[in-house]
């Protein structure tokens, strides 16, 4: 995993979770933490940037940013700190509570009242490791344009760094997901699937195999 030779040689020194670490420059922060024996690194999951777990705060000279450790590379003099997992979901809703597609916007405002209070600090946009136009997505959602808003969040990995970044507690990642879910729930009605479901309702699938076992 971490034992491949370095082209060009030369190691870098950095600090991870308060521990001084020496690493190869092609290593990610996760690999550098492992190689350096940094204790208690538990926020690691997929190692390819889609599970959103390995959230780090990164100090690079006077600049502080956030990132995913599995996609960030070791550099001389930087300091990385694994952040605790996001807080529990604050906005409560169940899709099955929605019965009428006409009142989605009203319901959205009840569930996410903060979404219309964006103060345009851009903290969410700067925090997003996936380059999502979070602020625009929130504006679309607040305007009831749920399909377009949801599309803006296609690449969201739910690291929730934008939620931590938002001073109005909008929880943008969850707003984006709400928009995607509500769009599927009310508008995804594919004829090929519906037709097959209807056929199966008329004549459920059975096979020799299933008959034997039941």
């Amino acid at each position: 995993m971490t034992d491949s030779a370095t082209p060009g040689g030369g190691t870098v020194e950095l600090v991870i979770d308060g521990v001084a670490v020496r690493a190869e420059p092609h290593m990610t922060i996760v690999e550098a933490a492992w190689a350096g024996g940094v204790p208690r690194v538990t926020g690691v999951g997929c190692l390819e940037g889609v599970c959103g777990s390995c959230r780090i705060l990164l100090r690079h000279g006077p600049d502080v940013s956030v990132a995913l450790a599995c996609e960030t590379f070791a550099e001389q003099g930087i300091e990385a700190l694994f952040l605790p997992a996001p807080t529990a979901v604050r906005h409560q809703y169940e899709l099955t509570d929605f019965t009428d597609g006409w009142d989605i916007q009203a319901r959205f405002k009840e569930i996410f009242p903060e979404a219309s209070r964006c103060r345009h600090c851009h903290g969410c946009v700067r925090s997003c490791p996936k380059g999502i136009v979070v602020e625009e997505g929130i504006a679309l959602a607040a305007a009831g344009r749920f399909r377009e808003a949801g599309e803006a969040f296609l690449e969201c990995v739910m690291c929730e760094l934008c939620d931590t970044a938002c001073p109005e507690q909008i929880a943008p990642a969850h707003v984006g997901l709400f928009c995607r879910r509500i769009t599927a729930f009310f508008h995804l009605r594919p004829p090929n699937l519906i037709h097959r479901l209807e056929e199966l309702r008329q004549e459920p699938f059975s096979s020799a195999g299933e008959k034997e076992s039941s």
């Binding site: 995607r180 879910r181 509500i182 769009t183 599927a184 729930f185 995804l188 479901l197 199966l200 096979s207």
Partner: peptide
């Protein structure tokens, strides 16, 4: 046999698929 119903259930959970 579950296939189509699984897709239906996922859409009801709010999952999107390409059309």
């Amino acid at each position: 046999g579950d296939g189509p119903e699984v897709i239906h259930w996922l859409i009801r959970q709010g999952m999107q698929f390409d059309q």
